[in-house]
Design a binder for these strands. Structure first.
Length: 139
DNA sequence: GCCAACGTTGGC
DNA sequence: GCCAACGTTGGC
């Protein structure tokens, strides 16, 4: 299983809304960046994603699961970009903030810091374990 | 195909 | 609200 991190501005789509959408989940649309698109296309059903709030909060708040692999993003008129479906899985007991990620030696190479503008990022196994530990959930 | 101009993202 | 990083666009 692979691990990812997906970003959303809580004003647009928050973790709470993701939770409310329940087990049927929601489509993760609106990605308009080719690097992010490639990551979406690599996602497999059952993969886990950290759900990160950008701008407001700036913290990893929960874990989502991929429930449908990539398909054409219906919100993209050019037909170039793709979406996946995700559902909320577990909230973190303690959100892991960007500040924590920056100070934690094991996390300082995370794409979240290195590629701060990329909205869909890969997460390594080691990074996943570390964030889960900080967040008070089991990996 | 290069590169300057411009727009967007996201942290501060 | 500012600005750095970076992707995209368009003129040449």
């Amino acid at each position: 299983m692979a691990y990812w991190l997906i970003k959303s501005e809580p004003d647009t789509w928050s973790w709470d809304e993701q939770v409310k959408s329940g087990t049927k989940g929601t489509s993760w649309t609106g990605v308009r960046n080719h690097a992010a698109k490639l990551n979406l296309m690599r996602m497999k059903k059952g993969d886990r994603c950290f759900f990160y709030h950008s701008n407001e909060g700036k913290e990893i708040v929960g874990i989502a699961e991929v429930i449908k692999e990539h398909y054409l993003d219906p919100s993209d008129k050019t037909g170039k970009f793709v979406a996946v479906d995700v559902k909320a899985k577990d909230p973190l007991k303690t959100p892991v903030t960007l500040a924590q990620v920056k100070t934690e030696a094991k996390l300082k190479n995370m794409a979240l810091i290195k590629l701060s503008r990329l909205s869909v990022q890969p997460v390594t196994d080691a990074e996943w374990m570390t964030v889960c530990k900080l967040g008070g959930v089991k990996a």
